[in-house]
């Protein structure tokens, strides 16, 4: 089990995450949802060890990720995969080399075996035959699928997905969501999916965590989230512009700014 204990992260004075406790269930799909700036990507990066928390710990079983040696961290990462929001394909390599990269780095497999494995992974994402293309020649959806194949290359036990469906057309988004669900179920992977795509998040997840301004405001199975009577949850799920979650995040009053700053228009009362 992956567990975040009193996890907090500050960027300067801005809190991205406030002393949050989080439990990720092994072999299940956990969707971390929330609006832009709610702290979900920060939480994902903390769980993956890509950021150091300002406070708290990340536990992998009984090992503290924050106190782990680099060697041990890399050992652990050999059983992890990550799909990045903008794919993060290595742009000096073609599709084949990108997918084969972890296999070349961490295994002693013969090239013919690697070629077969890459073909299998690319077939899974529907891109067999595109091995020779460079990342710059791929569409957003294709790049995401190649990144998915690369994340799955080592058959990881834990996979992190950062906004896997953002910026994709509905069909490509559906393909990625189905891939995540099918692969996670078949391989009994622990999948952590960060998304603001309500439809995809609720459809594929076993457990949903909803964040707002760095705090968990709801968590549970998708049905429990759907039926939550928390007004913030309902506003987010239905995308309502009015509700307890404000659209404006300004720290000062708009009217005060207009009326009291020298050199600006003074409104007549």
């Amino acid at each position: 089990m992956i567990r975040g204990e009193q996890l907090s992260k500050y960027f300067g004075d801005v809190a991205a995450l406030n002393a949050t406790d989080i439990h990720i269930r092994s072999g299940k799909i956990t969707a971390i949802m929330g609006g832009s700036g709610s702290g979900k990507t920060t939480l994902l990066r903390l769980l993956a060890g890509l950021e150091q928390p300002t406070g708290g710990h990340v536990w992998y079983g009984d090992e503290d990720l924050c106190a782990m040696s680099v060697r041990r961290l890399y050992e652990l990462r050999e059983s992890m995969g990550m799909l990045f929001q903008y794919s993060a394909l290595l742009n000096s390599m073609n599709v084949y080399d990108n997918v084969a990269f972890p296999l070349h780095e961490h295994t002693q497999l013969d090239e013919s075996v690697i070629r077969t494995m890459v073909a299998m992974k690319l077939e899974q994402v529907g891109l067999r035959g595109f091995e020779h293309l460079m990342p710059s020649e791929l569409s957003g959806g294709m790049a995401k699928r190649v990144a998915f194949a690369r994340a799955m290359a080592m058959d990881p036990r834990i996979v992190f997905f950062d906004e896997p469906t953002s910026g994709l057309d509905p069909i490509s988004a559906g393909v990625i969501a189905t891939l995540i669900q099918d692969t996670s179920r078949k391989n009994r992977m622990t999948s952590i999916v960060v998304t603001h795509d309500v439809h995809a998040g609720l459809a594929i997840a076993d457990h949903v965590i909803l964040l707002w301004q760095g705090d968990i405001i709801a968590e549970g199975p998708p049905d429990a989230i759907r039926q939550s009577d928390d007004a913030r949850v309902q506003q987010f799920l239905h995308g309502r512009p009015d509700g307890p979650i404000p659209f404006s995040r300004s720290t000062t009053s708009y009217i005060d700014d207009l009326t009291h700053k020298p050199g600006t228009i003074r409104l007549q009362s």
Partner: peptide
């Protein structure tokens, strides 16, 4: 970051 996550 992708390299980091691939244990490189």
């Amino acid at each position: 970051d992708a390299l980091e996550m691939m244990a490189i």
